[in-house]
Design a protein around this nucleic acid. Structure first.
Length: 295
DNA sequence: AAGTGTTTATTTCCAA
DNA sequence: TTGGAAATAAACACTT
């Protein structure tokens, strides 16, 4: 089986499921969300295997995006034209590959149905949203980090890394027999590009799909409520991502995984139908934000 | 028309 | 061996 760290998997099928590939792509960009076309591109850039039979695997990948609750859709702003939405990881999906296999998760991340999630009274939800909005606005001004909305009132240590963050994947992939993983003492960019170069070409280290929410489609957090409703089916009207197996104090890496830490300087070479460049700091909440708690 | 997103159905594969 | 996760196929709707 080919190992990460080599430049390429050649034509062999990479040992990753579509879910993990997609998660890698999303986690690999500073904004922690990508349009479908960029996910395709990420995969094709790094895995020659996926430069063929594109119809087949891209259909599968789209199926996975829709089917799996661990992916959420972020609508484009009206002033960001383009096809399709952005895709992000559900903040509560936790460590789906905690068993170390990126081919098969131990358990599928599945959201609960609305009756388990929606506050008992509508006013509760409204109040909940208002409180969070106040907290965030006071901390951030008007520039809400897109994904900060998923920091749903739970605190986290600032060192938390989303399980799909490449550094976590790498850490697992590169465990030495003694059980030691790669040290996190190295600069992240170094770590990523040297340990897993096919994952982190410079083009992936920077993108600028900044989305600041202004339309009425978005909640007070800057989160598109629609995106959390997953097709408007059984999900709550407020952003309360639930993962049964996730610890409540887990916080999405969308916040904690600062874009700057990934690549503050790399040129952006990706084709960017979706990347109207705006200052990345608009997406990066200060560390203090990561511990905004309500409970 | 092409790309995107959703859904259903079936098959394949793997871990327990 | 079996249950469930993943892969694949396909139909269909919607958007750009």
């Amino acid at each position: 089986m080919p190992r990460p760290g080599r430049n390429t998997y050649s034509d062999q099928k990479p040992p990753y499921s579509y879910i993990s590939l997609t998660a890698m792509a999303i986690q690999g960009c500073p904004e922690k969300m990508l349009p479908l076309s960029e996910i395709y591109k990420f995969i094709m850039d790094r895995f020659p295997y996926y430069r063929e039979n594109t119809q087949r695997w891209q259909n599968s990948l789209r199926h996975n995006l829709s089917f799996n609750d661990c992916f959420i859709k972020i609508p484009r702003r009206p002033d960001q034209p383009g096809k399709g939405s952005f895709w992000a990881l559900h903040p509560s999906c936790g460590d789906m590959f905690e068993n170390g296999s990126f081919l098969r998760r131990r358990k599928r991340f599945k959201l609960m149905t609305s009756e388990h999630l929606v506050p008992s009274k509508p006013s509760d939800a409204a109040h909940y949203l208002q409180q969070h909005a106040k907290l965030r606005l006071s901390a951030l001004g008007t520039h809400l980090p897109q994904m900060s909305s998923y920091n749903l009132g739970v605190s986290q240590p600032s060192t938390f890394k989303h399980p799909f963050a490449i550094e976590n994947i790498i850490a697992r992939e590169y465990k030495v027999p003694g059980g030691l993983a790669f040290s996190t003492g190295y600069p992240l960019h170094n770590q990523l590009t040297t340990a897993w170069p096919h994952m982190y070409s410079t083009s992936m280290m920077d993108s600028a799909a900044t989305i600041s929410m202004t339309s009425s489609d978005y909640s007070a957090y800057g989160v598109p409520i629609k995106s959390l409703c997953h097709g408007g089916q059984t999900l709550p009207a407020i952003p309360v991502p639930i993962k049964p197996t996730a610890l409540p104090h887990h916080i999405p890496a969308f916040l904690s995984n600062s874009p700057q830490s990934l690549s503050p300087t790399s040129p952006h070479t990706a084709t960017s139908q979706s990347s109207p460049a705006t200052p990345s700091e608009t997406l990066t909440g200060p560390a203090s934000l990561q511990s905004v708690a309500v409970h």
